[in-house]
């Protein structure tokens, strides 16, 4: 018999359990994982001491020379892992926010979360002249406080799409002004440090940044994916989701907290890498051609996008010359124009 939903496969066990998957989405996830892995290997081989693809793989397997082992496992692998985790967190956080706000522009960088994290970092850099670790904590706190502020300001018997976006844009403008003020208060050394941080960079990331991010993702990603089906019904409007037995407000609060944590942690680790959270979900969706929040494809797309952008920034302008945030910013700008043009052709704006 023909199935009701095309392009899906169902796996059923005799015990009455069943799992369903969108074939195309699975293929996209597989391809993106492969792309992210390949880009990571290439990225590890790139730098002042180029290492061949085969040597990188051999060293990762533990069979490299001592010199290669140091460069790969101590210097470059942690940086690439931070890149992958940051990209994945931003991709997933963006997909969550866009689904919750039902708006392709409702991503954390538009809603002011990244700017809020920046404020936290700037306070530490400019006013406290703190260490790198303290800057990370400052960014995390800034992001979380901004998320809380947006939720409280937007809450009016529940948080709804438009109000969330508008409140977010307002908060974003306010926080950006605060950031500008903090920069004017800084002396030259601090200001330079602040500006580098603000463009988003993966320079000098080591294992101490990998573990907290990995732990956070290990907790949040399964939690978020377990609520994906509830989020999918919320696409059809709060009333429909409620009628289908979804505790809309509870699911939304939980997923917003998860998205804020993911975004704040990613920003704390790499600075406000722009546009990944905005573009990854939209690109993933255009590849899977499936409605729904596309959480897993967005996550994989974010990881692949960030590592590729990091490679492009090093390759095109020499190692560590150009922060990765500049490349994602350029990509994002092009993407936004493309989105506006195609949506206008489709008659939506």
């Amino acid at each position: 018999m023909r199935t009701a939903v095309k392009n899906t496969r169902t796996l059923r066990t005799p015990g009455g359990l069943s799992l369903r998957a969108d074939v195309r989405a699975l293929v996209v996830v597989g391809a993106l994982l492969l792309a992210a892995a390949a880009a990571s290997v290439v990225l590890i081989g790139t730098g002042d001491f180029p290492i061949s693809f085969a040597d990188v793989l051999r060293t990762l397997a533990g069979n490299g020379t001592a010199g290669q082992d140091f460069i790969v496992n101590e210097l470059r692998l942690p940086r690439v892992l931070v890149g992958l985790l940051v990209g994945a967190s931003l991709g997933l956080g963006g997909a969550l926010f866009q689904a919750i706000s039902r708006n392709p522009l409702g991503s954390p960088d538009v809603l002011g979360l990244s700017q809020g994290a920046t404020s936290g970092a700037l306070v530490v850099i400019v006013l406290l002249s703190g260490t790198a670790a303290q800057v990370t904590v400052g960014a995390l706190v800034g992001g979380l406080l901004t998320g809380l502020a947006i939720y409280l300001l937007a809450w009016r018997q529940g948080v709804h799409g438009y109000r969330l976006v508008l409140v977010g844009i307002g908060v974003s403008a306010f926080v950006t002004a605060v950031n500008g003020y903090l920069l004017t208060k800084a002396d030259l050394v601090d200001a330079t440090r602040a500006v580098v941080w603000m463009t988003g960079s993966l320079d000098g990331r080591d294992w101490s940044q990998v573990w907290p991010l990995l732990a956070l993702c290990a907790v949040l990603v399964p939690l978020v994916l377990a609520h994906a089906r509830g989020l999918r019904t919320m696409e059809m409007g709060d009333d429909v989701a409620n009628a289908l037995g979804v505790r809309v407000e509870r699911v939304r609060l939980l997923l917003m907290v998860a998205a804020v944590l993911l975004t704040a942690a990613a920003t704390a680790a790499a600075g406000p890498v722009s546009f990944v959270a905005l573009t990854a979900p939209q690109l993933a969706r255009r590849l899977t051609r499936s409605p729904g929040p596309n959480l897993l494809p967005s996550l994989c797309m974010g990881a692949a996008l960030l590592v590729t952008a990091d490679w492009a920034s090093q390759r095109a302008f020499g190692a560590d010359q150009l922060p990765v945030g500049v490349v994602t910013g350029v990509l994002g700008g092009v993407y936004l124009l493309w989105l506006l043009v195609t949506e206008r052709r489709a008659g939506r704006i």
Binding site: K6, D238, D239, V240, R289, P291, G292
Partner: peptide, 17 residues
């Protein structure tokens, strides 16, 4: 069950889905 007035068909969703 409830069929509300404010239902939104997600972009690119098929009838079966």
């Amino acid at each position: 069950g409830l069929l509300p007035q404010s239902s939104i068909a997600p972009d690119g969703i098929t009838v079966g889905d």
